[in-house]
Design a protein around this nucleic acid. Structure first.
Lengths: 334, 334
DNA sequence: ATGAAAGCGCTAACAG
DNA sequence: CTGTTAGCGCTTTCAT
């Protein structure tokens, strides 16, 4: 019936010290600098600590050192399987180095993202910002105060992990060209999306090198639901090959095309980006440019850790290879 | 060229106080108990704080109050789309109440889970344990020290959010019976899985009520990869209807069956649990029992918050409805 | 309404 | 090798 159900008091370093008959600092050292304490004493301290169920209080440690041993990961949308992969990689990497990972969803909003960064700033040692929507200048300001690593976004002076869209889009264009396509239509996603811009830029360049026509429609919502409008527009434009901003949109397009009786790839070829779970499940299965979300997440955390803990100040850029996965949704031009 | 790239020093409450010409305690009050400080003073303090980019240091606050305003979510596997939904719901709910969410992946290991709980204990105000693998007794011990809410696991004395497997499995059995099936084969997942046990128990009960035969094979890995062995066993047993531990396994089964030329649902009907993204994409699309992962995550965080902050000590159990989604993978018995 | 001072748990000098 | 002391940023009595 107690009105204050707060957890039972946890054992502190002082409790352990008293119980073990040593000074608190000795307990502290037993945990953090084993070399500077008598082996026997240390053993005894550890046993007492174990018996009392002692675990160091991270907040207190953080207050002293200014380090929380915690890293934050911000994604625009947790639901998107691509970011789920990034999260997994980041979590694994953080856990491997004994760091805690805080996760936040900015809900595709630059303002929300900035708010979260501000709020979490003092509580974490750095941020991995995936597909950040924050403008370049604001990002630089943030990077002055906190360690930051970007994923699929590049800003001069800030570390980042990006997919090799240049090579990837070239692969896409080559693939379509080899199938006899003379033009392609890009169905774009959110205008603020850096990766969307890179994808489009890459396609333009590669296409122009091959004398292929390109057009761009959109923006469409990068979700299953966005596919209907995109597909209708593509049909109206009589496109023979469409490249979609991402797989979710592409799968939505495929679905709409199916409903409308448009043969894929017979009448129209469809390509996506991301190779999410589901792209190999849909019918026809989707040709797509695979990235490495887990790698990206893991490497970003590593780079961030080096910045936050390792004393390395250089802003390096890591380019991750992409891979074209050809499935059923692409075929010879009509 | 500096070897210590540590972030620029952040403004503290003392900085704000000095700059605003008031005492630190006044600044503190301006933020936490607005009523007890002069409106003009408060306004001034807030302006100065804003100008200095001040944000309260969560660690310091936590040290004083014993509360970190942080909640932890543990899942067995981030990659599983079901848990991705739980994560999303939890994140949204935590953010809505101004709480920080820490995410950890226990990698399907009870020991790993326990280790994480121990490590994070002092740093968070409570745990949401999704599909926990930790034994009942250990769970109770943890719940004595920390606020805990379980998802898809029930232990007397601990709050939980569970799916209504009793009704759900009855729906499954009714559906199969209405199609003329006289028996069903359950392809089981991990033996430690509580939800797996509930699913199997529900199927048994419902089937016996309807005079339907049930068998159980397994355990199989609850992943796409686990599907091959499971499918082969089902074929060898000449089953007419199989119910799989979850959708990932079911989709794997579907794929294997497709490779082996076994008609679905002509020769064999297949049912899954979870209704993950992908279950409507595969061919044939999958009949499955839908849960509400996002709801579960969100409600679990709410219940946990009530425990950790609200002074409510009762261990309540929330049962979330399930819904049978009938698609192409089930049909009349041969 | 506001200031001064103590203390949360821990680590890091500094002594001894 | 180990104990003592101070202080991290903040909240919270207790005065004023």
């Amino acid at each position: 019936m107690s009105a204050a159900p707060r957890a039972r008091k946890r054992a502190t370093i002082t409790d352990v010290a008293r119980e073990a008959g040593v000074a608190p600092s000795t307990v502290s050292r037993a945990f953090t600098v084993p070399g500077r304490v008598n082996a026997v004493t240390r053993q005894h301290v550890l046993e007492v600590a174990e018996r009392l169920g002692y675990a160091p209080n991270a907040a207190a440690r953080a207050l002293e050192s200014g380090r929380t041993n915690t890293l934050a990961l911000l994604v625009p949308d947790i639901t998107n399987p691509f970011f789920a992969g990034v999260i997994k990689g980041a979590e694994r990497s953080a856990a491997a180095s004994g760091r805690t990972l805080v996760l936040a969803d900015s809900q595709e909003s630059a303002a929300g993202e900035a708010r979260i960064v501000r709020r979490l700033g003092p509580a974490v040692d750095g941020f991995v910002l995936a597909a950040s929507r924050i403008p370049d200048d604001d990002l630089r300001r943030i990077a002055e105060l906190d360690a930051v690593t970007l994923v699929n976004r590049a800003v001069r002076g800030i570390s980042c992990v990006v997919a090799d869209y240049e090579a990837g889009t070239r692969q896409i264009v080559d693939h379509l060209a080899s199938l006899g396509h003379r033009s392609l239509l890009f169905l774009g996603g959110p205008p603020e999306s850096w990766s969307g811009a890179r994808r489009w830029a890459g396609l333009r360049t590669a296409a122009s090198e091959r004398g292929m026509q390109v057009r761009r429609f959109g923006p469409y919502s990068p979700t299953l639901g966005g596919g209907a409008a995109a597909a209708d527009a593509a049909v109206a434009a009589d496109a023979t090959a469409v490249v979609c901003h991402n797989d979710m949109l592409a799968i939505g397009v495929l679905r709409r095309l199916g409903e409308r009786g448009v043969a894929v790839p017979g009448r129209m070829s469809v390509i996506g980006f991301d190779n999410v779970f589901g792209s190999e499940l849909c019918r026809p299965s989707l040709t797509t440019l695979a990235e490495r979300p887990e790698d990206a997440g893991a490497r970003a955390i590593e780079m961030l850790g080096r910045q936050a803990y390792g004393g390395v100040a250089v802003a390096d850029e890591l380019v991750l290879p992409t891979q074209l996965v050809v499935r059923e949704s692409t075929g010879a031009a009509r």
